[in-house]
């Protein structure tokens, strides 16, 4: 289990994370959703021992991140937002070094298993700089799984990937979950949060403004969105809790409108007045 208690982090005068509290259950896929600069990556950096908070605590599997980082490092896998593979080394060498750093026993077999999981075993001896963006993201995921971590942190795992590769990545993440691991994902892709996450924490300007499963989050603001364009050419949205209310508004509207199901972007707009993507 992961527990974040009153986490705060400042960079100079900017408060990147502002008194954030949440709990993540074992085996859960938990998403941190928010636009760039919302504090998602800073929260992940603190949880993965790269950054120290100014105040607050984080506990993973009973170990405090600040007081016992060594135990935390043994339990976590990280896919960072920025690709930190050694581009001049081969896929195999990247995993070999990583496995040795983490004291992985039976390293060679586990490297094979990890590379096969993301369909990269046949490219094991290729230098990473020759890989496409999607292959490098898959290799990052494979590397993070090599240590068989109980908690996996994925910071914007599908950023920059085309939709097809993104869906392949989601399939791998779902497989990881089946193995019983806890997965923490940061994303600003609404579709990704809705497709993968059991619960989503919505971050805005460093603050956690909502936390629930995607269905409940949508239900609280309304499940039906009536969308149209006003006289200034701007998109105008009205969110309703029932289909009948939405239809009634659409029928009475003087301009053409469409009705659709709400998504987490609508939740974010309702809560902050801003867009995520």
């Amino acid at each position: 289990m992961i527990e974040v208690i009153g986490l705060t982090k400042n960079y100079g005068s900017i408060r990147a994370v502002d008194n954030v509290f949440f709990k993540i259950n074992r085996g859960e896929i938990f998403g941190l959703l928010g636009p760039n600069g919302a504090g998602k990556t800073t929260t992940i950096k603190i949880l993965t021992t790269l950054s120290r908070p100014d105040s607050g605590r984080c506990v993973i599997d009973g170990f405090d991140v600040i007081e016992n980082p060594f135990e935390i490092k043994k339990r976590i896998g990280v896919v960072p937002q920025e690709n930190n593979l050694d581009r001049e080394l081969t896929a195999y060498e990247n995993l070999l070094i990583y496995g040795m750093l983490h004291g992985v026993k039976d390293n060679k077999n586990k490297i094979r298993k990890s590379l096969e999981m993301v369909d990269l075993w046949d490219r094991r001896d290729s230098v990473v700089s020759g890989f496409s963006g999607g292959m490098q993201r898959r290799l990052l995921l494979s590397r993070s799984l090599l240590t068989e971590p109980s908690v996996l942190f994925l910071d914007e795992p599908s950023i920059g990937l085309d939709p097809q590769i993104r869906r392949q990545m989601w399939d791998v993440i779902r497989k990881i979950r089946i193995e019983g691991r806890t997965v923490v994902i940061t994303t600003h892709y609404i579709e990704e949060a809705e497709a993968l996450c059991d619960r989503v924490g919505v971050l805005s300007k460093g603050r956690l403004i909502a936390l629930d499963n995607p269905q409940n989050l949508k239900a609280t603001v309304g499940e039906y969105v009536v969308e149209g364009v006003n006289g200034d050419g701007k998109i105008v949205q009205h969110i309703y809790k029932s289909r009948d209310e939405a239809h009634k508004f659409a029928e009475e509207s003087e301009t053409p409108v469409t009705i659709r199901k709400s998504n987490l972007e609508d939740v974010f707009i309702k809560l902050t007045g801003e867009r995520i993507e």
């Binding site: 993965t48 790269l50 490092k73 043994k74 920025e82 690709n83 930190n84 050694d86 750093l101």
Partner: peptide, 13 residues
């Protein structure tokens, strides 16, 4: 720039 140093810092060494 390459952020590969972070791999060392996040390893239990």
């Amino acid at each position: 720039y390459f952020k590969t140093f972070q791999i060392f810092v996040q390893a239990p060494i």
